[in-house]
Design a protein around this nucleic acid. Structure first.
Lengths: 344, 344
DNA sequence: TTGAAAGCGCTAACAC
DNA sequence: GTGTTAGCGCTTTCAA
């Protein structure tokens, strides 16, 4: 087989102008749909552009254009391949597309350094704006970018050491909702299983759990609170131990979807899935197909992404009103696992 | 509250040079880490750059630079928020990040026009390369971009009317694998439930199904083949009808994940989930947690994304060998649903 | 080792 | 209506 060949370089406006027998500026006018060009010239230019396969170079235009918009925004999320981040991305894209803005997304993986790198990469490319579900808990490094005119919207987690727009879920309320649901079913020994406390959403949900217990006059039993990295074996062992101990709970609030899945697996191993109640936080695909079906507190992830994008574009449109903090509610969907009554 | 203020515009190399008391070119040298600048000057420039919060403008550099790389690639997938696409995206990102390349992803939604728009958007921004899981079945419009030096890799679906690299799954083999698995379990009346035949992967999987039947001397019963849009009620009704008819199958091959979920739901409604065997194609989250657990034929989605990215970067590195077509194998994981024996 | 001048592809401002 | 000139922020070329 023969080698592939490439590189007949792209045509420029200048070349189009030469072929059309006119000036560069006239080509610019036609390409950008400005008025005041005669139909004849317009036709000639269009024909020349088509013949040369002309494609305007947006970057070059951006450089000179006064309102300098690159029509690109950056979206930094936890990990672009997980369903939560992907849903956010999809929602942002829907809004961005309406304005011919492309979004490039990057994964932070809970890594502060990566956050800095990706922000740098975005700034170097002069994105019009930034939506960040941050890994870092100090965002003072973003103040300069903000001052330089790049609006920033925080998503899912709040800004720290910077003032900026944010779109959050009512995690405290959600934690409360889940716990109250179990209390209403008659439970008093309710375990909390969640992510590392350093993660904002996680500690907020724990706060909600505590508040619900307090409101029901249930003393907090620290042995019932398990926190850690869901990908480690240690936490799985801790859950297993708790469930088989003398002080085992009659219900569990799993405050994150991977935790919920871990709990489900362990409950099944122990044959307790119909004995111990379970309410999870966050969506789980096919929650309704499991046995028992899983009762979940969920956030409106699409609304989060959409709202963040709209906030960002409002800023780009010149909105200079004070920074907004938008908190979206959670809801609970009872499916069975959360309605199991306490054992005698 | 007071209004927010912005816009102390970004510093340029020129300004850094003035503050450092040197020339623009020297600043350029320092910023790009070129040799031949005295340590003293280097220090001065660095100090000035830091003080002015200087951020190089990549787009400006790209414009002048001879090897003109924007360090951006485009990834066009079916829908960025679905797990399949998101996994591809994540895999591509991992490879791209090693080279400081950012990727912007866009959703095609099986819409040919959108494919054209998004390709245009990418070209206008002069991406270094393009990875496409196409919606269109004519890609002749991409020949010019390819000739202009933008390498293109096709993913999941093959190029049409253009020669280009591609990374595909062995869908025929996967369809065969699923069907043979059911035949081995003793089934002879096996239904096929799949996506619209216009979708490449779908028709390939059907081909595999047919081949497996033929190899086992099972006559094709067209009433057992259902194809259509999984989001429509019509197809759900068709499945339900088939399963309750006199010519009902004893096993089902669902050739796409949404179809598999639809079949699971209907089987449960009819109380047949332990009577009729089921093998699905594509991953389903928590397949092992369902009852019965679902036997699935799966593709290695991460390998697909990674391979496509590597192919693309090889081209960017100057590889001019003939176009490659890489076909990745599928595998089957038996979990229970696919091993149900035929009813008497 | 350093810097001045030219120019990448395009748009802004202002002529004609 | 059309074209000319300048210049966006940077790298290249080449001279000092």
């Amino acid at each position: 087989m023969s080698e592939i060949q490439t590189s007949r370089p792209r045509a420029t406006m200048k070349e189009v102008a030469e072929l059309a027998g006119t000036s560069l500026k006239t080509v610019s006018r036609v390409i950008n749909g400005e008025a005041h060009v005669t139909p004849e010239l317009t036709e000639k230019v269009k024909a020349a552009a088509a013949k040369l396969q002309f494609r305007p170079n947006l970057a070059a235009g951006f450089l000179r254009r006064s309102d300098g918009k690159t029509q690109m925004i950056g979206l930094l999320v936890e990990n672009i391949s997980n369903p939560f981040s992907a849903t956010l991305h999809g929602a942002v894209e829907v809004v961005a597309r309406l304005r011919d803005v492309v979004v490039f997304a990057g994964s932070l993986d809970e890594n502060v350094e990566r956050e800095h790198q990706l922000v740098d990469a975005c700034i170097a490319r002069r994105v019009d704006g930034l939506i960040i579900a941050p890994a870092a808990d100090d965002h003072s490094y973003l103040v300069n970018e903000q001052k330089a005119g790049t609006p920033i919207v925080f998503l899912d987690r709040p800004p720290r050491n910077i003032e900026a727009d944010s779109v959050l879920t009512d995690n405290v309320g959600g934690g409360k909702l889940a716990t109250e649901h179990l209390i209403k079913a008659g439970h008093r020994r309710i375990a909390y299983v969640g992510d590392m406390p350093s993660i904002f959403t996680s500690s907020e949900r724990l706060t909600g759990y505590n508040a619900a217990l307090r409101a029901a006059d249930i003393a907090l039993d620290k042995r019932l609170v398990i926190q850690g990295d869901y990908s480690s074996e240690i936490i799985l062992e801790a859950i297993r131990e708790l469930l088989t101990s003398a002080h085992a709970p009659t219900a569990i609030f799993a405050s994150q979807n991977f935790m919920t899945l871990a709990v489900i697996r362990i409950l099944r191993q122990l044959g307790l899935q119909n004995e111990i109640a379970l309410v999870g936080f966050d969506e789980i695909s096919e929650a309704d197909l499991l046995t028992p079906a899983i009762t979940l507190v969920t956030q409106d992830v699409e609304a989060m992404g959409e709202t963040a994008a709209e906030l960002l574009f409002a800023r780009l449109d010149g909105d200079t009103s004070p920074y907004k903090k938008i908190v979206l509610p959670t809801k609970i969907t009872a499916r069975g696992s959360g309605e199991i009554p306490p054992r005698k």
